[in-house]
Design a protein around this nucleic acid. Structure first.
Lengths: 184, 184
DNA sequence: TAGAGTAGAGAACCGTGGTTCTCCCCGTCA
DNA sequence: TGACGGGGAGAACCACGGTTCTCTACTCTA
């Protein structure tokens, strides 16, 4: 039986995402992706021009999913002020997942940011879109626009700190700080 | 003329630090370090057991210097509350340096955090000591202890955002947020 | 059923990089 | 002055990983 193109592509992206998130880009070989995905090297190179394009595709798909998950969680909250705090509740849940290893984009930037323009564009695009999401919710709450970048810094700080030390603690700290900024 | 051990070690660390900060660990070869430092491979391997130990030594020395520079800047400010804000002024100066490429420890963590215990220990140690520095200044200002981790998140968020997008803007945002937290 | 084309397994190719080794120079000291 | 030993230049060694190629099997179709 022959795997349809879309399914082979999905399997390849699944495997690559899992491995790269766990170990970093350069620690994952195309052969590792082949082994985990069951998609042959030949097909991998038919689906993606090379490893860099695979990494790019992984980041792009993850961006859509990540922001969708966040948005689903946040917009389930009715109160517009509470939504802003719910961002940090969602971060806390994420940080507590057993295979959490920090923010994939921050990690990839640390590894490749200065050497791969394509990956750098993915990272900047993701962070910009996340900032826009936040800014939208700040506007919905009729809060001053300058609040959004401040909440963004708290979220980014929480992601990086949780990545390095582990655990949801930084999300709780960030939530407290965000509440303080909201209560002024 | 024969280079004394300490000077050879310094030159090797200087070169390795510069290259690794600019390009990331895996993009720098021992031969690049040899070329820039003028220290032969033989001597590099006499000074350090291997590349990982060199990276470790680079991070350790940079930790001392980085926190010293920060402390010098901050403690020059008389007012204890202003000191807390001065942290972000210093970050702004750092971010504006032409070769700024984000926080070296965050970057290295993204690249090696999950694969090198020695490097991970350096990263955690640095971040812990930075947090302790901040906590000390918060205590000096007779501010509640829970303020320190919140300022830490702002600082980390600023470092990561400035690394990705460039420029001192995130430090200014973080300073405003910190001032808001202080004015409650 | 025969032929064609596609896909997989796995070897092969090629560059790179960490680490070690060889060869030679030069300063030192008996 | 001659043996010695540290140090440098650069080759060599070895493993790894991205990419391509070969060979074979299988499926689909005429």
């Amino acid at each position: 039986m022959v795997l349809p193109v879309n399914e082979a592509r999905d399997r390849a992206l699944d495997a690559a995402e899992q491995l790269i998130y766990a170990r970093g880009v350069h620690a994952v070989g195309m052969d590792d992706v082949r082994e985990l995905s069951g998609v042959s090297l030949k097909r991998l190179y038919a689906l993606f021009p090379g490893k860099e394009a695979l990494v790019e595709a992984v980041l792009e798909r993850r961006d859509g999913r990540w922001r969708q998950r966040l948005a689903d969680f946040v917009t389930r909250v009715g109160d517009r002020d509470e939504r802003l705090l719910a961002v940090f509740d969602w971060l806390a849940e994420w940080f507590a997942e057993p295979d959490f290893r920090g923010c994939a984009w921050i990690n990839v930037f640390g590894e490749l940011g200065s050497t791969s323009p394509a990956v750098l564009a993915q990272v900047r695009g993701h962070k910009r879109r996340f900032a826009e999401q936040l800014a939208g919710w700040v506007a919905d709450a009729h809060r001053p626009a300058e609040l959004a970048p401040q909440l963004l810094l708290l979220a980014e700080g929480a992601m990086v700190t949780a990545g390095i030390h582990g655990g949801p603690g930084p999300a709780h700290e960030a939530r407290r700080a965000a509440a303080a900024l909201l209560s002024r």
